[in-house]
């Protein structure tokens, strides 16, 4: 048995298909579920190992990106969700999914219970939607990010700026919960500088995990940077490959996250076998 994935949809989430495609390409099987269907049968959460909340524009970002969808999840599915994350499962929120999980308080600083909002993902400093490729430095022991040091993937959001108190920041730092930070192409920190840090995020933060590392909340889009042909430098890469007579790799950076998810459950399975 391979691990089963559930990708949430509905109310303006819109990256569910490509996100599921990433998991499937990594050998996992899964399904897209409308939130209302999951509310109808919350037991489904007991049968899956991976929950993904994809990118999108749930409720049009009105009242703050991710807020309304998080409110709905909290009111209708809080207990089943608690049970799900208490098990040895993986959860990822990408972009709007990151905003939703953050509004749900599912990436709290160590010591704070799930459900308490200590972190906000809010309007970009430019107050403008940004769709562009960025570079990330990965410093995390999260199973999602196993073996990844650097990623070149796109962001696409109007509200991707992590904000929190100094105390929360310190706790996140001390406990290795800052999963990814924006850097410049030369690997030096973005230091808040646009466009390397595309939203003015505190401490260049692009992704956060909960204290177990099993819940990853990430603003950039790994599923939009998982095939070589998706890359912003694809034209250059394929030209170079042709000149050098080398084959063009099908996948690239972002695919590693999906492979890591598959790997996590394969390993776990071997242990139990």
């Amino acid at each position: 048995m391979t691990a089963k994935v559930l990708v949430l949809a509905g109310y303006g989430l819109n990256c569910e298909e490509e996100t599921l495609h990433g998991f499937e390409h990594a050998g996992l099987s899964g399904q897209i579920r409308h939130i209302n269907d999951l509310i109808d049968s919350p037991k489904e959460l007991d049968e899956i190992q991976i929950l993904a909340i994809p990118g999108g524009f749930s409720y049009g970002d009105d009242t703050g990106a991710g807020n309304a969808y998080a409110q709905k999840l909290k009111l209708a599915l809080w207990e089943p969700l608690q049970k799900f994350i208490a098990r040895d499962t993986l959860t990822i929120g990408i972009c709007n999914g990151c905003q939703i999980l953050t509004n749900l308080g599912l990436n709290p600083p160590t010591g704070t219970p799930y459900g308490d909002r200590k972190i906000a993902v809010t309007y970009n400093e430019t107050a403008r939607y940004q769709c562009r490729w960025i570079d990330l430095k990965i410093t995390s022991t999260s199973p999602w990010l196993n073996g990844i040091e650097r990623m070149h993937i796109p962001v696409a959001h109007g509200e991707g700026r992590f904000m929190m108190s100094d105390e929360t920041l310190k706790t996140l730092q001390d406990n290795g919960q800052i999963a990814a930070q924006y850097i410049k192409p030369d690997d030096t920190p973005a230091n808040g500088e646009f466009p390397y840090n595309p939203n003015g995020s505190l401490n260049d933060i692009a992704a956060i995990t909960d204290e177990t590392g099993r819940i990853l909340t990430i603003m950039p889009h790994p599923e939009r940077g998982m095939f070589t042909s998706q890359r912003d430098d694809y034209m250059q890469i394929k030209d170079t490959a042709r000149r050098e007579g080398k084959p063009l790799p099908e996948t690239t950076g972002g695919m590693a996250l999906f492979h890591n998810a598959a790997q996590y459950f394969e390993v776990a399975q071997k242990k139990t076998a």
């Binding site: 490509e18 495609h21 990118g55 939607y129 769709c131 562009r132 889009h221 939009r224 034209m235």
Partner: peptide
């Protein structure tokens, strides 16, 4: 171009900024 999401659906190959 940077305000318009041009890589949602994961389908972008040759984009608006080259």
């Amino acid at each position: 171009s940077t305000q318009y999401d041009h890589n949602v659906q994961g389908s972008a190959v040759m984009g608006p900024l080259q």
